[in-house]
Design a binder for these strands. Structure first.
Length: 467
RNA sequence: GCGCCUCUAGCUCAAUUGGCAGAGCAUCGGACUCUUAAUCCGCAGGUUCCGGGUUCAAGUCCCGGGGGGCGUACCA
């Protein structure tokens, strides 16, 4: 029985070995002795000479094992695909010119007791790929690439924010009152406090409390939870970037978002032109900015306004097959008409600006247009990427918006907000003019990697349990 | 939630009209000192997602259930 060591120290990564020996000619042996470790992906035993392919996560390199010099040659030949091994030996090339590490000593680091998937076809069954991601990531190079890109995206985003003077904070995930978005929350319970709690649907209200506290540029990157349906664009837990910048308005935030996305595209793909499915999306600045009213007009040729009577708006809805409830006010009707007739046709990048206050309970009223707010969403590749606004800073107006929401909640709308008295108290201490933003980082990762399903950018997507 | 599609060996896939469940890879045994998805010979590997039904006979047809995908609804 082989002894599995507790520790194994490598001195090289395959990626580096390949880069440093690019011009080594066939049949050469260097005096460079290296130690590497990884997983056995292929094996070609030829009697008294064996070849194997080792993958250490950074790349693949051939192992060259002649019976004369390889310790325990027979056992080496008995290794299974998927086994982890550590190898020390000289860097060399074979007669055919394949860069290799000669196996001067080796040790088994882990045994693969289960057979690995077909070495050529890998796994195609998406169910298995999502459920057994630990296998998928080894055998599906595109999956590995996607998650490496996602990791770099998060890291680049953090440094982008920090270079602009933002500080990263962490706010509660357990909320006694869910808030910051219209979404159904998950519920849980704390035993010692005998307290019902909600998993947050957004960090928004806590972050603005921090702006009140004098942190003038804050951001948080964290998981939020929404108890709603699953789709190629929705996972019940997903990662949100939210930021709040004091003294800024929604125009400043639009500038920031397009700078961030352009920067990430260039760093990660080298181009501002992204491929989404078989369609291109150019995220180069500046992005188009158009109001919701303008976009609806382009789409259906009708200029809506909050001054129109509710009957006029309902008539437009009926004419275009947009369902509505009697409880909908003018603002909600306009939003519904936009979503059903216009939004799905947008490709972007485009900023959709000026949302009705009725459907924007945390956004500040437009400086020139009563009943509208200084809010925008960005549409990229036909998907909503972010939601942002000049923040509502007036505690009295906020209370009245909360009360409208609470009435809808009481009326059966499980996604409507509740009154958050502590948040109102915070506003009473003074929230300066502030621009705020929320970006779905999973959707951003989809854009940058070209993924068509959110499950392809979430390591362990929510699934029903097996059996 | 609704509609359509799908589920066969560890993996990738076959199986004619309803007629003995098969192949490649992996695993196991054997041969081979420059291979590249190595090759060659051999063994083994199955609750055909589950449960009913029709039939002389069901992987195949019918009904019910389950997993998954896509669409739709919901979801800023």
């Amino acid at each position: 029985m082989a002894e599995i060591p507790y520790r194994f120290v490598t001195d090289s990564r395959v990626e580096e070995l390949i880069a440093h020996h690019a011009d080594l000619e066939a049949g050469q042996e260097t005096d460079n002795v290296v130690t590497i470790a990884g997983r056995l992906m292929l094996r070609r035993v030829q009697g008294k000479l064996a070849f194997a392919t080792l993958d250490d996560g950074s790349g693949r390199i051939q192992l060259f094992a002649p019976s004369k010099t390889t310790p325990e040659f027979d056992k080496f030949c008995d290794l299974n695909l998927g086994d982890w091994v550590g190898v020390t030996g000289v860097v060399m090339t074979t007669r055919r010119g394949e860069l290799s590490v000669r196996v001067d000593s080796w040790v088994l680091l882990a045994e693969a007791r289960r057979p690995f998937p077909d070495k050529w076809h890998g796994i195609t069954d998406v169910d298995t790929r999502y459920r057994q991601r630990y296998v998928d990531l080894w055998v599906t190079p595109e999956a590995r690439q996607t998650f490496l890109m996602r990791s770099r995206m998060m890291s680049l985003t953090r440094s982008f924010m920090e270079h602009r003077g933002f500080i990263e904070v962490e706010t509660p995930i357990f909320h006694p009152i869910p808030g910051g978005a219209n979404a159904q929350p998950f519920t849980t319970h704390h035993n010692a406090l005998d307290l019902d709690l909600y998993l947050r649907v957004a960090p928004e209200l806590y972050l603005k409390r921090l702006t009140v506290a004098g942190f003038d540029k804050v951001f948080e990157i964290g998981r939020v939870f929404r108890n709603e349906g699953l789709s190629t664009r929705h996972n019940p837990e997903f990662t949100m970037l939210e930021l709040y910048q004091a003294y800024a308005d929604y125009d400043d935030i639009m500038n920031l978002v397009e700078e961030l996305v352009e920067h990430l595209a260039l760093e990660l793909t080298g181009s501002t032109v992204l491929m989404v499915g078989d369609r291109e999306l150019d995220v180069a600045r500046p992005w188009r900015r158009a109001t919701m009213i303008e976009l609806i007009e382009e789409s259906i040729g009708v200029t809506l306004s909050l001054e129109m009577s509710i009957d006029e708006l309902r008539a437009v809805a009926v004419e275009h097959g947009v369902p509505f409830k009697d409880s909908f006010g003018s603002g909600k009707l306009i939003l519904e008409i936009y979503e059903k007739t216009t939004e799905s046709a947008l490709w972007g990048p485009v900023y959709v600006t000026e949302y009705p206050a009725e459907v924007s309970p945390l956004a500040r009223e437009h400086r020139n247009k009563p009943g509208m707010t200084e809010r925008f969403e960005a549409i990229l590749a036909g998907r909503e990427l972010c939601n942002a606004f000049s923040e509502l800073v007036d505690p009295d107006q906020q209370r009245s918006r909360f009360e409208d929401q609470a009435a809808q909640n009481a009326g059966g709308d499980a996604e409507a907000m509740m009154v958050d008295e502590d948040y109102l108290r915070a506003l009473e201490y003074g929230l300066p003019p502030t621009g705020g933003l929320g970006i779905g980082m999973d959707r951003l990762a989809m854009l940058l990697t070209g993924a068509t399903s959110i499950r392809d950018v979430v390591l362990f997507p929510t699934l029903r349990p097996e059996r």
